[in-house]
Design a protein around this nucleic acid. Structure first.
Lengths: 225, 225
DNA sequence: ATCAAAACATGACAAATATCATAGATTATA
DNA sequence: TATAATCTATGATATTTGTCATGTTTTGAT
C-alpha cells in the first residue's frame, strides 16, 4: 500500500498542509479501496466518519429533492477530498456519493485526523481556504441556476467538463455521463437534456457516439443563450 | 463607542472564539458605521479588506448575472459577519452588499484580524465550522433552485423570512422587501413574483399592505407545490 | 449470438414562466 | 399638496420547459 507522505495526490488538497510525521501516522491507519462505476460511497443521511481522498476516478455528489429527482451538486475528481464538511461539523452527510467510473480512493478515519484540525493551524487554515473557494463556486452556481436557461446551463456543463477532464486520444470528453446525469447536473428533465444535446449536435457544437461526447465548437458553446 | 469584548453580538459569530486580549485589541482598531437603507456596503469586484460585523439591520448579498439581473444569494442579519470568504482567500468580493434597512455595523480591518486566523486555532476552527454550515445551506439552495417551482421557492422564502425575522407587533414580517427583491431572492421575473404573491393572497396564505406582508397560513405555505 | 433491460430519441401536448404593454397605487420630494 | 418617479398589478401573448407516449438503439447478461 502506498504511503501518504509520498503520495503525489496530497498536493492537490489540504493534506499538503500536514507535516511529515502526521502524514506517516495517517498513512498507518488509512484504508485504500477500489470502487466500481455505479457503486455508492455513502448516502445522504449516513455518517461518513472520516474523509475520502480521491486517487483516481470521478464521483458525483447529489441530493434527492422533494420531487424525487436527484440533483448533482458537485463532481469530485482526482485529488479532491470528500466529506470535509461532515468532518468539520460532525454532522451526517448532506449528499450521496456515487462513482461515475472506476475509482481508487483512500479513507482516513475521523479519529485520526480530527486532532490535526484543532491543533495544526496550517491544516485548518488550508481547509478553511479550500472551503471558502467551494463556497464561492456554490454561490455562482446558485446565480446560474436561478438566472440562466436550461440550454445555457447545459452548454456551461459541457464547457466545464471539457476544461476539467480534457479529452481522450480521440477527442472525446474525458468523462462519460448518461443523459440522466447531464439532466441531473443541469437541473432539468432527462428528455429536455436529450433534446438540447440533439440540438447542439444539429448546430455542430458537439458530436456524440453513444455516451461519448466531443466538443466541436467551444466558442459556439460559450455563445449559447 | 462600544467595546468588542463586551458586545453581545460577538456571541453569534466566530469572534466569540477570540480571547479577551484579542478582542480588546480589535476593539481599538475597529470602526463603527451607520448605513442607511439602500446604501451599498461594497460592490462585486471590490476589495473589502476586512470583515463587517452586523450589529443591527439586514443586508442583501447579490450577484449580477449575465442577463443583467441581480440574484440575491444570501440575506445577512444581526450577528452575522460579512466578508469572511474574501478575508480567508484574500480575493476581491464575489458579491454586492446592499442594506435593506438602516444598519449599524462594525468594520474590522484585515490587518488586525488576519493574524488571528493563522495563530488562533479556536478562531480559525470556528470560522471553518461556520463556513461548512454555509456551504451546506448553499448546496441545499442549489437543489431547490434546480428542482422546485417558482411558486414553491417563493413560499419557501416567505417561510424563511418568517422564521428568521419573526413579526412586528401587528403581525407583519420583521423585514420589508420590494417585489423586486422577492423576485431576486427566488430567481424569477418581478411580474411573476407579484403574480404569485397575489395568488397567495387570494388563497388566504398571506395578506399584504403595501410592502408589509403578513403570513396568514404557515402550514398552507408549507404545502404549496 | 440472443434476448431483455436500460438508455436514448422524438412527437404531441400541457404547464410554467417570461415578456411586453398598460394602468393604478404609492412614495419621495420640490 | 402637487407632481414626478417608482412600485405594484394584471392582461395578453410568446417562449421555455415538463410530461406522457411510443419507438429505436445500445448495453449487458446468458
Amino acid at each position: 500500500m502506498s504511503k501518504c507522505e509520498q503520495c503525489i495526490i496530497k498536493q492537490f488538497n489540504s493534506l499538503r498542509a500536514l507535516g511529515k510525521d502526521d502524514l506517516i501516522r495517517i498513512s498507518g491507519c488509512k484504508t485504500s479501496k477500489f470502487i466500481k462505476k455505479g457503486e455508492i460511497l455513502f448516502r445522504e443521511g449516513e455518517s461518513i466518519n472520516g474523509v475520502y481522498c480521491v486517487k483516481d476516478g470521478v464521483c458525483k455528489l447529489s441530493k434527492l429533492s422533494a420531487n424525487g429527482k436527484d440533483q448533482i451538486v458537485k463532481l469530485v475528481v482526482r485529488g479532491d477530498l470528500i466529506g470535509q464538511r461532515s468532518l468539520v461539523t460532525d454532522e451526517k452527510s448532506n449528499l450521496t456519493a456515487i462513482a461515475l467510473n472506476d475509482m481508487e480512493i483512500c479513507f482516513i478515519p475521523r479519529n485520526e485526523i480530527i486532532n490535526d484540525l484543532t491543533n495544526n493551524a496550517n491544516f485548518s487554515l488550508d481547509m478553511l481556504q479550500e472551503m471558502a473557494k467551494e463556497l464561492r463556486v456554490a454561490d455562482n452556481i446558485i446565480v446560474d441556476m436561478a438566472q440562466k436557461s436550461v440550454k445555457q446551463r447545459l452548454a456551461d456543463v459541457l464547457i466545464y467538463l471539457y476544461e476539467t477532464f480534457n479529452t481522450d486520444e480521440k477527442g472525446f470528453l474525458g468523462v462519460m455521463l448518461s443523459r440522466e446525469d447531464y439532466a441531473s447536473l443541469v437541473g432539468t428533465a432527462t428528455e429536455s437534456a436529450i433534446r438540447i444535446l440533439s440540438q447542439f449536435k444539429k448546430e455542430g457544437l458537439i458530436s456524440t457516439t453513444g455516451k461519448h461526447v466531443k466538443i466541436e465548437d467551444l466558442e459556439g458553446l460559450r455563445r449559447v443563450e
